[in-house]
Amino acid sequence: MFIIMIRTLILYISVIFSLRVMGKRQIGELQPSELVVAIMISDLATVPMESVNIPLTAGVIPVFTLVIAEVITSFLCLKSRKVRRIISGEPSIVIYDGVIIEKEMRRLRFNINDLLEELRLNNCHDISDVAVAVIETSGKLSVIPRDHARSVTVEDLGLTDVRSEGLPCTVISDGELNETELKRSGKSLKWLKDELKKNGIDDMKDVFIASVDAEGELFIQKKGEG
């Protein structure tokens, strides 16, 4: 019983370590080789987890070997366009200037229903509104709308006094001050304390979340407020 628990924990740590080594891309957008590795790792880890007759190394060594292969493959893809084309393939244009490229659709075995579904998911309901649609190597469809169908931008409207929307700095999280974020926000600790006092807060521990936006404005939510 305890043996299985310990073995499971070891394999759990090994798989997490492996995914961390493979990087963030592994968790989000999966390339073909990454998908293969993800499936294989999950399967390899469960076999020695279940059976105590199989040594733990029989699960750990293949998992690490796959990580080695995957990281080396990613490195080669990064360095060589040729390798990248072989391993990940290349994006394919399926709609150009409002016209579906049937030949490419047939080659990708991508039917019209799939295409329409992906277009709807991209908030595009009319094929004639599409300037270019590309099937990326991860299998997702990217849509570039025609000029008349795209959203209006700030540039189109010619606005000059626009509120900037940078990444807010979470200076206090769950009652704890994040000094790195405070430094990034360009504000001082004294300023933060003064602002908290203005909002009737004497102790940072009473703050659930406080963030400074790109305009330098402070957002505060007290604990127990939500």
Binding site: M22, I61, F64, V71
Partner: peptide, 14 residues
Amino acid sequence: KSMIAVLIMTAVLA
């Protein structure tokens, strides 16, 4: 960092 980790893992496994 990943490459270094992988090289160490390769050396250890080999």
